[in-house]
Structure formats: C-alpha cells, structure tokens
C-alpha cells in the first residue's frame, strides 16, 4: 500500500555493531545528556509560597459581587442554582427591609447563600446564568480542609469585602 501521508518510516533492524554492543559510547552520550540537565533551571514552582500566574479565563473560587455603591448585587433569583449541573448552590431568599436599603440593591436578597465546594466542578455556568452580574469565579484556588462540612462556603466567605469608605 502506498503511504498517503508520507509519514511512514521503515525501520531497519540491523544487528548491533561492535561499538554498540559495548554499550559504552551510548552510555557516555547519555551521561552527557543528563549532566546537561543538572545545570538547567528547575521548572518547579514552590506552590504555597509561589503561585503560578493564572490564565485570564481561569475559574477559581466564587465571589458574590457588590455594585458601585457597595450594595450586594444578588437578588436570589436562583438561576445560578438552576443552571448548576453539580447541584452545588442553594440559597434562601428574604425581603429587604427599608433600613437595609444600603446593603442590598434589589428588594429581594439572599439571606443564606451556600456553595458546596466539593460538589462544584468550576464550570462557570452560574456566572453565565446570572442576570445581575452578581457571581464570578475570579478567586484563587479553593484551599484544602479536613471536614466535609467546612467545604460548604456561606456568604461570610463568598461575598466581596465591602467598599472602603472614602
């Protein structure tokens, strides 16, 4: 059969000649190769102290955003929970009281908002589903922990830090 790709290589199996049977020339060459690597810079990143630069479309830990006036954007519509393929998001909605006007942007807000980080697959569908631009996966790597219950992140860990008062 004619080779169409021209990538086929016919390897000839010749018996080893004397130098090859001695192994030594090949071994010396190999030792040279490994020694050249001895002086190369190592490509290791010492992780907890050094962090690799993330790509621009990296999806890490979620954060619940605030608007320009520092009010929480989330209106507890539940679209993120619906869109979540891993069933990681739950929330309880509540109605905003008049005195909480500075805290929440809409009349309805999420009193409880929980993401189970062990269930989350970091697909970013919640981010896409959100009509209020309230959730983004722009955080760091989710840290490790010992207990399953500690991986259920509430609003204390998710909501952005409040805006600094000028």
């Amino acid at each position: 059969m004619e080779s169409l790709s021209n990538k086929k290589k016919v390897l000839e199996q010749k018996p080893l000649n004397f130098a090859e049977r001695m192994y030594l020339p090949a071994i010396v060459k190999g030792l040279g190769t490994t020694m050249s690597h001895f002086f190369k810079k190592s490509s290791t990143i010492r992780y907890p102290e050094q962090v690799r630069e993330f790509s621009i479309n990296w999806r890490g830990m979620h954060s619940l955003k605030r608007d320009e006036e520092g009010k929480e954007r989330c209106t507890a519509c539940g679209l993120c929970a619906l869109s979540c393929p891993a069933e990681a998001i739950t929330m309880i909605a509540a109605e905003r009281k008049p005195e909480e006007k500075d805290l929440y942007r809409e009349e309805k807000y999420a009193a409880v908002y929980e993401i189970n980080m062990l269930r989350c697959i970091f697909c970013g569908l919640c981010e896409e589903a959100c009509p209020k631009e309230a959730i983004y996966l722009d955080g760091p790597i989710v840290p490790s922990d010992y207990l399953r219950k500690d991986f259920i992140y509430g609003k204390d860990k998710l909501v952005e830090a409040p805006l600094e008062v000028k």
Partner: peptide
C-alpha cells in the same frame, strides 16, 4: 535525581 530531571527534590 531531582536536579537531573529539572526538579528541586525534597526541600
């Protein structure tokens, strides 16, 4: 081993 493989080894 680590240096020959461009790594750092136990540190």
């Amino acid at each position: 081993a680590a240096f020959l493989q461009d790594r750092l080894g136990p540190d």
